[in-house]
Write a protein that binds this DNA or RNA. Structure first.
Lengths: 114, 114
DNA sequence: TCAACAGTTCCGAATTTCTGAACTACGGAA
DNA sequence: TTCCGTAGTTCAGAAATTCGGAACTGTTGA
């Protein structure tokens, strides 16, 4: 398996963020992650209500989120722990992620303060 | 020519906004429009520095911006006047457009106040 | 009536997205 | 060690989307 690519903070492009979050499924995944203390696994996020996302599609969603700089993924044994890069991102693009999640009506409780 | 479609404020979808603004060319067009008092025409926005956008592509960019709810277009004689729907949009999705333009480093002077 | 101009539509080529199937990687049991 | 099950990735081809040149539409002015 190829090593996972994560862009450095300064290499994160707004167009990649916007593109990644222009898909409601990815927004739902990202929002769930943002509301989870420890990192969430892929399979734990497969069920977003109405439809079960095929695992290859899910894997691709995570790849898009990761390579856009929205999340960080780390292999932990047999599974993958994913967590958002919200604090860093807010430093680089102040208010952006919060405004987007709010627009979708998906700002998790954990991000409502501050 | 087909009549131009503009979504009602309540029908504007965040995914459409994000998708429309995930293309740097469209962001440049939108930002220029946002910094223009009277509506800008298509041809006036064709030149964004490095490359001249083919007019069919330009027409399509305007269509995407219009149908996502970001701009309003109105035929005026032989040309088209385009203006942003920023005030409405900010009511529906507070801070969203501003955060996006800021992330791109393209917030025009006119929007810096308030 | 005609020419020029602004912008739209059409359509084929190129690119991207989607997802089932095959595959890889790791951990636990025996 | 070998085998099995689970988590996730990669591959491949079908479907959908994007791009842009060429043709077209609608408007104004001569």
């Amino acid at each position: 398996m190829r090593p996972l690519f994560h862009p450095a903070l300064e290499d994160i492009k707004p167009e990649a963020i916007l593109y990644a979050l222009s898909d409601p499924e990815r927004v739902a995944i990202f929002s769930k992650l943002a509301g989870t203390a420890c990192g969430g696994t892929c399979s734990a996020l497969a069920d977003l209500g109405d439809r079960v996302i095929p695992k290859s599609s899910l894997s691709n969603h995570f790849k898009v989120l990761r390579e856009s700089g929205l999340i960080r993924s780390e292999r932990q044994g047999v599974e993958m722990r994913n967590q958002t890069r919200c604090p860093e991102l807010d430093e680089r693009f102040p208010g952006l992620v919060r405004a987007i999640l709010t627009a979708y009506g998906q700002l998790p409780e954990q991000l409502k303060t501050g």
